[in-house]
Design a protein around this nucleic acid. Structure first.
Length: 502
RNA sequence: GCCCCCAUCGUCUAGUGGCCUAGGAUAUCGCGUUCUCAGCGCGAAGACCGGGGUUCGAGUCCCCGUGGGGGUACCA
């Protein structure tokens, strides 16, 4: 019997957070591994902070990651009648009681009397009042909250990641389960909904560890089957603090926008608090599902390490076939396009001009794919590909300063002369990698200098940068005409430089 | 304050009493390949939080401390 039913219940108060995404992933992996069902439930009971836009953002995040769900999305708010009925049921059965006190006043009084839990006062008042009086005041329309009467003893469970867990009930206060305004409180709502959805395994963040005994008490009071719990570690920022905005991007959508591949993100997230038990790191979806097990989930919280995410993304990028990479590149280019024609190129994350985008689209597929083959192995994100593709798509707007200093201006007259020779040789050369190479090396030999003396200025001349893929591959893609023009431009640039030698 | 969880290289982790002079990955550094960058190959440096036990033997078990995290709401 499989019958595993898990759930992911985000609250739509923001975008899909990487922590939430990781929790969702573990649930998804477990469901897929066991042939079970993943239920998506939007916990929208906090009306003030919830929004439809956020709900959509979360669904989008799930979809982007490729985490599909089998049932839902359900909405917690749709269950309030049931929640309320269950609170009343507990009241009727004497497992809960009415609290007529004012929350702030009760808290103040408890503090003043040195009582840890305000609820002990609430319970005392309820008991002193008696059921008849309580019912009478409720009947009279006096507002009241409903609190669970926590029994004596202790509450324990076997946690899938922490093992045996046990809490003394004396440390658990009589939690409110229904507010005075008739709305249910979170702990009742989750329990009710999870039972309603026949959830068998509650896999959630560590931060719910101390909610668990309260919820178990609720299951028991309501006579509902208690699911299996597994509390996965939280994800922290680089400083060991809870991951938050100030650590940088925390929404999965941010990473989509930075050119991270969903497969890389999934792989990376899976390895945060879990490992397959061997040295594998790059693991595809199916491989992850196959290897996943709650037994290997870590107890220790993990730090979200951008460096490693970047490395992993680079691995995925390098392995992605160019024809599948192409649409992603176009997407990122389009997203970064600006109307300004003279957007500075050569700077990382520079805006993409319409001209570049148009040229890309106009280029033959074979050319685009050849370029991607060259670029994809030397980057960590799709956006870096966009950056590095720029010199191939638009005229140069200047030369990288440090590289120009080194390869142009150090001996400007000689460099200019050499570029002239180079241009002539190139003009006469066959346009294949091998021919270009012997042409360029031939020029260097003839001048009695190392090949680097020809190659580096040439690279700078045609790409405007000090770094690029192999120069001969670059020339082939750039084409004869464009190459000759750029080399000529570089020569002119050097001649017009008053700097002379350095 | 009280309750709870956690603790191996900077980071992700392997390790379930002897296989550990602690393994892998990332990041860092060096060497090689080479026209640069990236990649790739090779190598270096880098950790069992502290103290007590238990045991012939402890990174592994127990206790205390310390540190970090979470909870303690008529938030979710």
């Amino acid at each position: 019997m499989t019958g595993v039913r898990v759930r992911f219940p985000p609250s739509p108060t923001g975008y899909l957070h990487v922590g939430g995404a990781r929790t969702a992933l573990f649930n998804w992996l477990l469901a897929r591994k066991e042939g079970g069902v993943l239920v998506l439930r939007i916990e929208d009971t906090d009306r003030d902070r919830s929004s439809e836009a956020h709900t959509q953002a979360i669904l989008d995040g799930m979809t982007w990651l490729g985490l599909d769900w089998d049932e839902g999305p359900f909405f917690q708010s749709d269950g309030v009648e049931r929640h309320r009925a269950q609170a009343i049921q507990l009241l009727d059965e004497g497992k809960a009681y009415r609290d007529f006190t004012d929350p702030a006043a009760l808290r103040a009084e408890a503090e003043q009397k040195g009582i840890g839990h305000p609820s002990v006062l609430a319970r005392r008042y309820a008991d002193e009042m008696g059921e008849a009086e309580s019912a009478r005041r409720a009947e009279a329309g006096e507002p009241f909250a409903i609190r669970l009467r926590v029994p004596e003893g202790s509450t324990s469970w076997h946690d899938l990641v922490h093992g045996r867990m046990s809490f003394d009930n004396a440390d658990i206060d009589d939690l409110v389960i229904l507010r005075a305004d008739g709305s249910p409180i979170y702990n009742l709502a989750v329990v009710s909904d999870d039972a309603e959805h026949r959830i068998t395994h509650v896999i959630r963040g560590d931060d719910h560890l101390s909610n668990t005994p309260k919820q178990i008490l609720l299951y028991e009071a309501l006579g509902l089957p208690v699911p299996t719990f597994g509390h996965v570690p939280m994800i922290l920022g680089s400083d060991g603090k809870r991951l938050s905005k100030r650590h940088g991007a925390t929404a999965v959508g941010d990473y989509a926008g930075e050119g991270i591949l969903p497969a890389a993100m999934v792989n990376f997230l899976a390895l945060l608090g879990w490992n397959p038990g061997d040295d594998r790191e790059i693991m595809g979806r199916e491989e992850l599902i196959e290897a996943f097990s709650m037994e290997r989930v870590q107890k220790k919280s993990a730090v979200f390490d951008l460096d490693k995410l970047g490395w992993m993304n680079g691995q995925y990028l390098a392995r992605l076939p160019a024809d599948r990479l192409e649409p992603l590149v176009v997407e990122r280019m389009a997203a970064r396009t600006v109307d300004d024609e003279i957007a500075p190129s050569g700077r990382p994350s520079a805006p993409v001009t319409m001209e570049q985008l148009d040229r890309w689209r106009a280029a033959p597929a074979a050319w685009r794919e050849a370029l991607l083959e060259l670029l994809k192995v030397r980057v960590r994100s799709v956006d870096e590909i966009v950056d590095q593709a720029a010199p191939f798509l638009a005229p140069l707007h200047g030369y990288e300063e440090a590289a120009a200093k080194k390869h142009f201006y150090r001996d400007a007259p000689a460099t200019a002369a050499r570029l002239r020779v180079l241009r002539e040789a190139l003009a006469a050369s066959e346009w294949t990698e091998a021919d270009l190479e012997s042409t360029v090396r031939g020029v260097a030999d003839a001048e009695g200098v190392g090949a680097g003396k020809a190659i580096h200025p040439l690279r700078l001349a045609v790409t405007g940068r000090g770094q690029s893929p192999g120069i001969f591959e670059v020339l082939v893609l750039l084409g004869r005409e464009e190459t000759l023009e750029r080399v000529a431009n570089a020569g002119e640039h050097l001649n017009s430089q008053p700097k002379g030698t350095a």
